[in-house]
Simulated scan of single mutants.
Amino acid sequence: MPIASPREVIVGIVANPASGRDIRRLTAKASVFPTAEKANMVQRVLGPLGRLGVDRVLMMPDKTGISAGIVRALRTHHASRLPPWPQVEFLDMPITETQEDTVRAARMIEAAGAALVVVLGGDGTHRVVASACPTLPMATLSSGTNNVFPDLREATVVGLAAALFATGRITADEALRANKRLVVSCGGREEIALVDACVTRLDHIGARAVWEPSSITELFVTFAEPDAIGLSAIAAAVETVPRDGEHGLHVRCGEGGRPVLAPIAPGVLADMDIVEATRLEAGVSCPIAARHGSIALDGEREIELDGSEQAWIRLDHAGPPTLDVPAALAAARTRGVSQPFGLPQVVGSSARGDSHSVDPTINPKRRQS
């Protein structure tokens, strides 16, 4: 894939076709997040990107219909002579329908020189992107089951803020927010979580999602908001931990503890007993008590504990940079740089004074994705 020229502005898009469709929604009778709406969200992002001068969008392909919906929309948009969208290219990559697709797409987007990647998914999707590309800025959009890390926000507004940053109208200091993360180590393996790491008695990964509250023994969180849905809601029932705070929280669950009620998934309220809750300080490695079971990262079981290795967890502030949409839009208003084209550049952007056409013939090899 060609690397961006000094004046070319590239934005990536990763839309997880599987997000918002797991067992937690099915067992709770919650609605799934439809493919058509994901394609519509991408289109609502493309509009602001095109209006503010983003040249190219690199998008992860899929087999569920998101890519096909975008190809149809591109043809219609081009024929209607509407305000231009960026040139959209689907990444030339194999489709495995596993999280490896997200990993490969994120790395290809970063290697191409993208200013940031727009991610549609839940906590798990954003964790995978952050693991693959720790320093690539993310614009987050909720389309999952547990949506604590990504913003629940209109895609048009996210697209506008992303375009302002990508084209250099506002700086990284104005547009981006730092995040905490949890680093889980077990033997020679190291994984991260952006919101929570949950230790369960379940021996096997299985369906991955944690939806049996009685299996939970320990919970570690980077932040815990009172209105959260997901496992971090258990910690939030004990103490609010700010997203931008210095510390996290470690919660131990078990019989005889303080009873709390927490919404751990859509439609699922869990009765939990909290034995102990202590602050999790940054940089301090904490041993995980259980030697058998499994560890869920941001709601999905990823690590099996077979008793052969001690698992450790620590909190740090090396999480991925994310687009702070309100701050970005406020900065643009202050600077007076939220107009389409021809305005002064702030940090060497490629925002241009001329419109550009959209070529609807995009990566012919990937049209049927």
Results as ranks from 00 to 15, higher is better:
residue 1 M to C: 02
residue 4 A to R: 15
residue 10 I to H: 02
residue 17 P to K: 02
residue 19 S to W: 07
residue 23 I to F: 07
residue 24 R to S: 13
residue 24 R to M: 05
residue 31 S to T: 06
residue 32 V to Q: 14
residue 34 P to N: 05
residue 36 A to S: 12
residue 37 E to Q: 14
residue 39 A to Q: 06
residue 51 R to H: 02
residue 53 G to Y: 09
residue 57 V to Y: 01
residue 58 L to R: 04
residue 59 M to I: 10
residue 60 M to H: 07
residue 61 P to L: 05
residue 63 K to D: 14
residue 70 I to M: 03
residue 71 V to C: 10
residue 72 R to W: 07
residue 75 R to N: 10
residue 78 H to K: 06
residue 79 A to H: 01
residue 82 L to C: 07
residue 85 W to N: 07
residue 89 E to A: 11
residue 90 F to K: 02
residue 92 D to F: 03
residue 94 P to C: 06
residue 96 T to S: 14
residue 97 E to H: 09
residue 99 Q to K: 05
residue 104 R to A: 00
residue 109 I to Y: 02
residue 114 A to H: 09
residue 114 A to R: 08
residue 115 A to I: 02
residue 117 V to C: 06
residue 130 A to Y: 05
residue 138 M to G: 00
residue 144 G to W: 05
residue 147 N to W: 03
residue 163 A to K: 00
residue 163 A to E: 01
residue 163 A to M: 01
residue 165 F to L: 11
residue 166 A to F: 03
residue 166 A to H: 13
residue 174 E to C: 06
residue 178 A to T: 12
residue 182 L to D: 13
residue 186 C to S: 06
residue 191 E to N: 13
residue 193 A to P: 08
residue 200 T to E: 05
residue 204 H to L: 14
residue 205 I to H: 11
residue 206 G to T: 04
residue 222 T to A: 03
residue 231 L to E: 14
residue 236 A to W: 06
residue 247 H to E: 10
residue 247 H to S: 12
residue 264 I to P: 11
residue 264 I to R: 05
residue 265 A to L: 11
residue 270 A to F: 11
residue 272 M to W: 12
residue 272 M to Q: 13
residue 277 A to S: 09
residue 278 T to K: 12
residue 281 E to W: 00
residue 282 A to I: 05
residue 286 C to I: 14
residue 288 I to A: 04
residue 289 A to E: 15
residue 291 R to H: 13
residue 292 H to Q: 11
residue 293 G to Y: 03
residue 294 S to R: 05
residue 295 I to Y: 08
residue 298 D to Q: 04
residue 301 R to C: 09
residue 303 I to K: 09
residue 305 L to I: 11
residue 307 G to L: 10
residue 316 D to K: 00
residue 317 H to G: 00
residue 324 D to E: 02
residue 326 P to N: 03
residue 333 R to M: 08
residue 339 Q to F: 07
residue 342 G to V: 09
residue 351 A to E: 04
residue 352 R to L: 12
residue 353 G to R: 15
residue 355 S to D: 13
residue 362 I to Y: 07
